[in-house]
Design a protein around this nucleic acid. Structure first.
Lengths: 208, 208, 208, 208
DNA sequence: AATGAATGAGCCTTCATTCAT
DNA sequence: GATGAATGAAGGCTCATTCAT
């Protein structure tokens, strides 16, 4: 009885979950407090009561624990750098594309890039900067130390660019290839492609 | 009389030019009709008068002639496929990143991907589909015919993903690396990196 | 036909007039844009369209030309200082208390004193400071030059305090003496009382 | 048990004290229940729980014992009427202007005049009417019995008007004469001025 | 008894759009 | 044909109040 509709202490949690959905779907600007509250089954004033403002809600809705865990797990795994890049891409693409993924934060993050809100600073410092560093080190391990900082950054961008493209391009894909769906199998195939593509390019740098 | 007419025509043209600026800068949703009219030195009602609606203005503001010309020129150039990919990337990245670039349509296009509006259908059919086809053929020429359609598409995505990432990530870059600027030299270096990275990956497929 | 209800260029003027009524009645904070627009027969958005904001409307609603004219006329009148004080009080109290008075600005001003809004700065510099100066000179002329600046200021306050009290205390008066009304005759009697009271006090200073 | 009760009683008392502060500072309308509860260290619901409503709290916050005591003391003092007016003004102005004054009720009262709330009825019957009567008698004693009721009332208004003006005009004074502060010495000087000014005017009536 | 949570009415403002000339 | 004026729907947010415990 108290599980789904109870207006108890879980309102706050439901608001955050609804906010993640709506922010991911419409972006910060396009999302309305009213829609978030509607989905959470709460009053319009609930957002301001619990989070102070729409901005505050976005701040709380962003939670990069999944992304951080992914990197920590990857660093502690006992694999060669190439294998670790493959594992990272697998996990990252699932997080980014899988509908069933619990963490929609990556999608909010992706939207913030295209349409920054005041929360971008937090995203950059808490999620993107560590991610850049993590991937930068991985790239260095794969290629060797011969790279300049600029070259290393560009390799990271080449990898992240491929990943985020699949997220952004989804509406286009639905129009051009309606038969394609990001099911688990497809996502894994995509991740494998990005890994192959990127490793080939990185290893070429190594030998070159 | 012809002056009045030409005045009207000029207003219309100024509106379109202003719309391109504002849409590219703020996205469709973030752009306001008032700001567009202000920049065009026109009345608030001018947009609806000339284009029926904000949507209609976006439709008119989209003009892919620059992008099309780029592809046509590339196809008629007498170069090997690898060289043609390099040339394409050079031109494409300049179009995407150069502040002084006359054609801001690519940026509007990039924003539409992240935040689709009713104009996305037009963009997909008139710009993105041909671009995919163009790049798909180029990839095939480079790698050979052995690729599946899915594999080919993914290679195209890997290339376009790298390109568009630099556009989307600009606000992040300003925070993480304030010293970086997309001047002409930097853009050319980026294009060269993407070309090297992609060609290495594609050629690995060929030999593989 | 076009006089009372025509939604023509007079909307702006009707808004200002309605704003004066509502601001005078409820104060800046208590007044609502909706009520002002309702009285003016205009849309809620009209205030922002014409004046930018509620603040902007208040700024426009304040118009001290009546108060200024009163002082200018008084200064150019060929009377002794005592007589000029009597004339000023007569005009000032009519402006302040007469329902039929065209200029309700004095009432808005009186409310601003009790509950300052961002417009108070304008009121102080444009209306109150000149009024203080005007009355200060008049007091000096009556009493002579022997007064200190502080003493002069307090005499001005004694006069203005008596005047504004009748405005502020109106709701109380309606409860304690329901038979009293600020008709023209009553207002003139009040003005005469304040003049007698103040002149007696000032002349006592002179002889003292 | 008595501790819990006393805790409740204390909360109630703290709410009243906080309400006096906030009502005096912002007026009834401008004061928020949240701010009052915050200052009292109580829950938002406490006001409605203890007093039924914001209105109810204002009713309880009003306490004219200080004002009444002032009048009682004055009546029982063995002085001539002139001296008693001087004493009253001294005490009254301190009550009205001294920051350290324990009884802020006079300020709430003064604000209510400018911006009446439902509590005005209580204020009028319990504080203002007795005050008018008290001052009316004092004026009669000073001037003699020759005055009409209307004339007597106007003299009372002339005195009260001078007093309340200093309270209302404080925000203006801060802008025009930032060096002025209502410290004890200044307040006493003001009270003395009002007494001199008023007594001179009243005595002129007597002899007249 | 007392409170954290939640409410709904209302606020000012912004916006794309339409109207009247 | 073209525009200044006006519109109404919707936005985020604040507030005194009520609810559920």
């Amino acid at each position: 009885m108290s599980e789904t509709q109870s207006g108890s202490v879980q309102t706050r949690a439901r608001l955050i979950e609804a906010a993640r959905e709506v922010f991911a779907q419409y972006g910060f600007q396009g999302a309305t407090v009213r829609e978030i509250c509607r989905r959470a089954g709460a009053n319009v004033a609930a957002v301001n009561y619990h989070f102070g403002s729409k901005d505050g809600l976005l701040g709380e809705a962003l939670n990069f624990s999944g992304l951080k865990a992914l990197q920590t797990d990857n660093l502690t795994a006992d694999h060669c750098p190439e294998k670790r890049l493959r594992l990272f891409l697998q996990d990252f693409m699932l997080m980014l594309l899988d509908e069933k993924s619990a963490s929609r934060q990556c999608r909010i993050m992706a939207r913030e890039l295209a349409d920054p809100s005041p929360a971008l600073d937090k995203i950059v410092s808490e999620a993107i900067a560590p991610l850049h560093e993590f991937l930068g080190r991985l790239v260095c391990e794969i290629v060797g130390d011969k790279m300049s900082a600029a070259e290393q950054l560009r390799c990271v961008f080449s990898i992240l660019g491929q990943c985020s493209f699949y997220y952004h391009t989804e509406p286009v894909l639905q129009r051009l290839h309606p038969e394609l769906h990001y099911d688990r199998k497809e996502i894994e195939a995509i991740a494998q492609h990005i890994a192959n593509f990127s490793l080939a390019a990185l290893l070429a740098k190594k030998s070159g």
